[in-house]
Computed example of a mutant assay.
Amino acid sequence: MTRIFINGFGRIGRTVLRAWASGWAPDLQIVGINDIASPDLCAHLFAYDSVFGPYPGTVEWAESRLMVDHRSIPLHRTSDVSKLDLGHIDVMFECTGKANSRDIAERGLQAGAGRILISGPSEAADLTMVLGANEGLLGDQSIVSNASCTTNALAPMVRLLNDTWGLQTGWMTTIHCYTGSQPTIDAPRGDMLRSRAAGLSMVPTTTSAQNLLNQVLPDLAGRIEAAAVRVPTASVSAIDLTVTLKTKASLADVHDVIRQQSGIIGHTDKPLVSSDLRARSESLIVSLPETRVTAGGLVRIFGWYDNEWGFSCRMLDVAQMMKPGPIATG
Results as ranks from 00 to 15, higher is better:
L220F: 08
L109Q: 03
P183H: 11
D191R: 08
G114V: 04
S82L: 11
A105M: 08
L127M: 06
C313K: 04
E225S: 15
D69W: 07
T268Q: 00
M157F: 01
T291Q: 03
A221S: 13
A153E: 02
A187I: 13
H255R: 15
I36E: 02
F93Q: 02
Q215Y: 09
A155S: 06
T2N: 14
W304H: 00
G170K: 03
N100I: 14
V31Q: 05
M157T: 09
T205K: 04
K98F: 14
I264L: 01
T184A: 15
D240H: 06
D27F: 07
V286S: 01
R280L: 03
N100S: 14
P326S: 10
N214E: 13
F302K: 12
F311H: 05
E106G: 03
M1H: 02
S38C: 12
I30C: 01
A155L: 05
S79A: 15
T174L: 09
N34I: 05
M92C: 12
L45G: 08
I118K: 04
P183V: 13
G10D: 06
G310T: 03
D191Y: 09
T164C: 01
I12R: 08
F93A: 05
F302I: 12
S38Y: 14
G296S: 15
M1R: 05
D103K: 10
T169C: 14
S50R: 13
V16Q: 01
L154Y: 06
I301H: 00
F93N: 03
T151E: 06
D35G: 09
N214A: 14
H267G: 04
L193N: 15
V81A: 10
L109W: 06
S38D: 15
R230N: 02
L84M: 11
P39A: 13
M157V: 14
V51A: 07
G10H: 10
L84S: 12
S50W: 01
P54C: 13
M157W: 06
A47C: 08
A328H: 15
K323D: 06
G263Q: 05
Q29L: 07
G330P: 15
E60V: 05
A21P: 02
Q320K: 11
P204L: 12
S145H: 08
V144D: 07
G132V: 04
I175Q: 06
Y55C: 05
R278A: 05
L277T: 01
F9A: 08
S148E: 08
I258P: 00
A198G: 02
I285V: 15
I36Y: 07
R278Q: 00
A99L: 08
L167E: 09
S148R: 05
P232F: 00
F9Q: 10
R230D: 04
S283V: 04
M1V: 10
L316F: 02
S72A: 15
Q260R: 15
A328T: 10
V31G: 08
R3I: 06
E123V: 02
K323S: 07
T268A: 04
L251C: 13
N152P: 05
